[in-house]
């Protein structure tokens, strides 16, 4: 079994990275689907409320729109997939956006919440208290032997203390977000079977109730489909 998997990898028949998600039974199960050049593409815009449940990464706050995309190969034709082959355009606006990679999104979201260097006027005060027992030695003033409990208090003052990181603001968070987005994204690589996954696009300007136009530029041809925005 392991040998078969290795051979499949060597032949480039399995996705290079990202497991993706299970494709729906047919392309017709997606709100939008279109065929061209032996390839059928199905797509659906995921509503922001559902994105919040599906992802630990806060894609809504980052200004990303998530599309569930499935690619079906007619007659088991080999397709070379890459998330970069997809472009999204809002019908209201003229700008076009390419699917963003998991690493780019994770880096952008983490840097938003990363700890900022402290302002020079920030002052931190650390009170300290000490209690102990002392034995031995002589008081240089009285000449008496010293023994007993001693106490002390003090205050430490720091200037320019860096701020703690915000939610999902550490380096480990960036790695975790990247892993999540890549695990769930549309698998890249050569395939002959149906594959599905999420694509993340910077939200195009325009009204939320727009229709989006998704274009796939594949090795077998170009597929263009109009994906309706989700109902609120």
């Amino acid at each position: 079994m392991k040998r078969a998997v290795l051979l499949l990898y060597a032949a480039g028949m399995l996705p290079a990275f990202g497991a993706g998600i299970r494709p729906r039974d047919s392309a017709a199960d997606y709100p939008a689907h279109e065929s061209a050049g032996g390839v059928t593409v199905g797509a659906a815009v995921i509503p922001p409320a559902q994105v919040r449940k599906l992802f630990a990464t806060d894609l809504n706050a980052g200004g990303y729109i998530v599309l569930e995309v499935a690619v079906y190969s007619d007659a088991r034709k080999e397709i070379d997939l890459s998330p970069g082959d997809f472009l999204l355009r809002s019908t209201a606006g003229a700008e076009t956006a390419r699917a963003a990679s998991g690493s780019a999104i994770a880096a952008a979201l983490q840097s938003k919440n990363a700890p900022q260097p402290g302002k020079s006027r920030d002052v931190s005060v650390y009170p300290t208290a000490t209690v102990g027992y002392e034995s031995g030695g002589y008081d240089p003033v009285t000449g008496q032997r010293r023994r007993g409990v001693y106490t002390g208090v003090g205050v430490g003052v720091g200037v320019g203390q860096p701020q703690p990181p915000g939610p999902a603001g550490t380096d480990r968070d960036r790695t975790t977000m990247q892993q999540e987005l890549e695990d769930k994204s549309l698998p890249a690589g050569k395939t002959t079977s149906a594959v599905a996954g999420y694509l993340y696009f910077p939200k195009p300007s325009g009204k939320a109730r727009d229709v989006y136009e998704l274009t796939y530029y594949g090795n077998t041809g170009q597929v263009r489909l109009r994906v309706p925005a989700p109902a609120k």
């Binding site: 208290a129 000490t130 102990g132 034995s135 002589y138 240089p140 010293r146």
Partner: peptide, 17 residues
């Protein structure tokens, strides 16, 4: 220097909060 200052001194304890 005065003799008492030459004595070995042991400080035990200390509480950190």
């Amino acid at each position: 220097a005065p003799w008492p200052a030459m004595q070995a001194r042991v400080r035990l304890g200390g509480v950190a909060v």
